[in-house]
């Protein structure tokens, strides 16, 4: 049995690796795009005028109140229904990026609002413009503040990437299911997939801890 699992594993090694590669790519793209968009969402929530704040607030609340699976399905089927053929990969990444942006947006908002008002006032008092204040004073402080929560979101995105299997993206979970349908070693291969997801997320968490240590201010 164990021998046959290793045999099957060896046979399936490239399939598993391509599935893992796909999962990592999906997650990475979604995290990157979602974080960039999320920073703007967060800034809009803190610095925007009433109308912009209202619109962005509606966006984050709707996205956060919707199951990710629904977002993934909607992104895929609605886009093709209205004639934009995104393909499962792009549609899936888009859905995850939108989901990610609403979470990152909230995290950024919280981090920016946690900075004492005096910081902005001191920056203004020495004559910094808004942009200078943001890049030199607010952002570096907000980043330290939101790093732990951001790492958490990144790990969530890796987990959410499994949902793309339902629209036929050949990521790790779908690949695993395909392998199992051939050799029926469900316990072993699901366990393997679980272990691989764990390793990726553990890596993200370690990386986050490392950056946190690097950026901690001496006191």
């Amino acid at each position: 049995m164990s021998q046959s699992f290793l045999d099957q594993l060896w046979t399936a090694r490239y399939v598993i690796m391509s599935g893992l590669g796909m999962s990592v790519s999906i997650s990475l793209l979604a995290i990157l795009a979602g974080s960039v968009l999320g920073v703007f969402v967060g800034m809009a929530l803190v610095f925007g005028g009433a109308a912009l704040r209202f619109a962005v607030r509606a966006y984050t609340d709707i996205v956060r109140g919707t199951p990710v699976l629904v977002l993934v399905l909607a992104s895929y089927y609605v886009s093709s229904a209205v004639g934009v053929n995104l393909g499962p990969f792009t549609a899936g990444v888009l859905a995850l990026a939108i989901f990610c942006s609403s979470h990152v947006g909230e995290i950024v908002r919280g981090a920016l609002q946690a900075i004492p008002k005096g910081q902005t006032e001191a920056a203004k008092a020495i004559g910094l413009t808004f942009t200078q204040t943001f890049t030199s004073v607010l952002w570096p402080q907000a980043m330290r503040q939101f790093l732990p929560a951001w790492v958490n979101t990144a790990a969530e995105m890796v987990k959410a990437s499994t949902l793309l299997s339902v629209i036929g993206v050949a990521e790790l979970l779908l690949r695993t299911q395909e392998i199992i349908s051939r050799n029926f070693l469900s316990l072993q291969f699901y366990f393997l997939a679980g272990a691989l997801y764990f390793i990726v997320n553990y890596g993200i968490e370690r990386f986050g801890k490392y950056v946190e240590r690097k950026t901690t201010l001496p006191s």
Binding site: P116, G118, Q119, E121, A122, A123, K124, A125, I126, G127, L128, T129, F130, S136, V137, P140, Q141, R144, L217
Partner: peptide, 24 residues
């Protein structure tokens, strides 16, 4: 304009009750 006000603010210096140093 914001830019003009920023320039004018640099003409005066201010020290605050809570210091407001940039901690980073």
């Amino acid at each position: 304009s914001e830019k003009e006000i920023a320039r004018q603010r640099a003409l005066t210096g201010m020290a605050f009750q809570q210091f407001n140093l940039f901690p980073h």
